[in-house]
Amino acid sequence: MIHLSYTDLGLCALLVIACGGLLTLHHPALTRQLYGSALRCGLQLLLMGVWLSFIFTRQHWGWVALMSVIMLGAATLEAGRRQAVPLQAAWRYGLALMSMGIAALSMTMLVVVALLQTDPWYSPRYFLPLLGMLLGNCLTGVSMGMDHFNRQVWQQQAQLEWRLALGMTAAEVIQPLYRQSLEAALRPTFNMLVSAGVISLPGMMTGQILAGAAPMEAVKYQLMIMLLLAVCTSVGIMLALSACRHLLFDERQRLDLHRLQPPGG
C-alpha cells in the first residue's frame, strides 16, 4: 500500500483553491460554496477518522451501537429535508427512521453474521462502514420516494377523489401513484447497477485497489455491496411508501391530507 501523507492531501487542497479561483470568473457565489463544502467534508472525514480509530481499538458493542444510532439519526434528519409537500415532522422523521432503520440494520446484520462471519459479529471495522454505505443509498431513495409520492398526491387530489367517487377502493386509486413513485425513487439505484464497471468505477472498489487490494477481491466486495444496496434501498422505499399510502386515507377510505404540509400552508 502506498502511504498517503498530509502533505499529499494539502496538495489536493491547493487544487481545490485553484479551482475556486477559476470558478470565480464564471460564478463567484459558487466559489464560497466550494470552499465551504470542501472544508466541511475535510473536517467531517478527519473527525470520523479519529472517532473510528478510537472505536476500532475499543471493540465494544456499546460504541458500535452509539455510532449506529448517530448515523441513523443523521440519515433520518437528512431524509426528512427537501420535501416539496412534506408530511408533518413527527410522521416524516418517524417514517424515515422506521424504513431506513429496518432496511439498513437488518441488511448489515445479515452481512456480518451470515456472509462475512466477523468475530465478534459487531466488529466495528466491518459493521460501521457497511451500515454507512447502506444508509447513504437508502436515504436518497426514501427521501426521493416520499417527496415524489406526497407531491403527486397533493397535486392530483381532485382526480383521486373523483375515482373514489366512482366506487374505487383507496388501494386501487393510489396504486398508479405508488408505482410511479417507486419507479422514480429506484431509478438512481438501477442506473448505479447498470453503469458499474462500464461507465464508472465504484468508489469503494477504487479505494480498495488504490490501497493495494487485488482487483478481483475488490470486485467481489463491490459486487456484494452493490447487490445489498439495491435490496436495502428497495426495501426502505417500499416500507416508507407503504406507510405513506396508509397515512393519507382515513378509516372510511377518504382522502385525508391533514398530515401533509403544502407550500405556503
Binding site: Q156, A158, Q159, E161, W162, R163, A165, L166, P176
Partner: peptide, 11 residues
C-alpha cells in the same frame, strides 16, 4: 351514491 363533481379531473 353517485357523486358528479362540478369539475371532473380524469386520470
Amino acid at each position: 351514491i353517485g357523486y358528479l363533481p362540478a369539475q371532473v379531473h380524469w386520470w
